[in-house]
Design a protein around this nucleic acid. Structure first.
Lengths: 192, 192
DNA sequence: AACAATTCTAAGCATTAGCTTAGAATAAAT
DNA sequence: ATTTATTCTAAGCTAATGCTTAGAATTGTT
């Protein structure tokens, strides 16, 4: 009986996610959102309640985006150190191809909002916990495969690489590629 | 002949710096600034031209602040690896004492604005260049003192520690102290 | 064909943003 | 004491912010 929507929620959400990714939360206006999403303000609020909720859903959308496009090799059952190496060098190359790096949406958010908003902070922490567990699993596999020493402190190394990931997000905005390669090169060889 | 000012430019600038440090650039309104600086909007614009210029001068103020309060041991003629260790563990402890870490104003700025504004980006890069040179000097000293191997790639390690510094700024907002200690512990022992 | 449920358009709401201005207050120089 | 240059107060400017609303348009169902 009702009139049907002329847009797809997931599709416009992904476009919103990209706007937040480029401009950050505060600097993204609803006017800009309706322009980039291709729908009216009314529709935005009808589908996503308000700006903050749209942002939180954008974070979820980003999480999926990144699981499919960046973390996939690391999420394989037997992913080890080789996959970890490829992941970080891939992260640097990804920044090289773009004119100015957007960094990681979640890291950007943590930097911009800190824990000022508890709902958003919760999403950030969930994301980090997920990545820490992913790294831990990869490192355990790497030990099994004898790619890294058996006495490796997996928890410690996972926290280290979580920090490295955050650093790449920020550093890719100011460092050039040689500097970035220096950074991940040192970060990776320390474990051997 | 003129009426004399009732406030000190440097003093209110430092207060402005602190507001930007806590809230970031966009989220800091001129109303909030006049409240925290203790002077009227007119006086702000008379003394600092506009918000952006006030921000840039705040960055300079921060640079001095940090040279005197954080980098001083590293800027000593013969500062070596011991000073580097103390610097990073001190950075973690500084975050521990505060309820929620503010991070580093410059790293926050790089994260929030990227290179969207070229004037601000220039200040950020100047700051990073300064720190890279400082690290290089410290590392050269550390080699001389035989605290680290003679074949250390100083340029590479300097870029690494520049990344580490940026990471601490971001990570201190979400990681707890054990996690942060894991991070700098790995970052430091790799050079041995 | 008429109905009913929902989407869309476009205008408008109050609030806040960065910034400016007119005029009173002040203090050093004459 | 008057002048004069400057600072300060307080009000107000335009534009943008997040969000809402009234009403026209559209669609599947009856």
């Amino acid at each position: 009986m009702p009139r049907s929507k002329t847009y797809d929620d997931d599709l416009v959400l992904e476009k919103a996610m990209n706007v937040f990714w480029v401009h950050g939360y505060e600097a993204t206006s609803v006017r800009l959102l309706e322009k980039e999403m291709g729908i009216n303000q009314f529709s935005i609020y009808a589908s996503f309640k308000n700006k903050k909720n749209l942002f939180i859903q954008s974070i979820c959308s980003y999480r999926e985006h990144v699981k499919n496009h960046r973390f996939q090799p690391l999420l394989h059952e037997n992913a080890g150190f080789q996959e970890l190496e490829r992941f970080f060098s891939g992260a640097v190359n990804a920044n090289m191809t773009e004119i100015s790096s957007k960094g990681c949406l979640i890291v950007n958010t943590a930097g911009e909002l800190g824990d000022r908003d508890s709902d958003i902070a919760r999403e950030v922490n969930q994301y980090y916990d997920f990545i820490r567990e992913m790294f831990k699993n990869v490192l355990r596999n790497a030990v099994k495969k004898q790619e890294i020493p058996v006495n490796t402190n997996v928890e410690q190394q996972a926290n280290f690489f979580l920090g490295v990931m955050q650093s790449i997000s920020v550093a890719s905005k100011t460092m050039d590629n040689n500097q970035l390669n220096d950074f991940i090169s040192v970060a990776l060889k320390q474990i051997k």
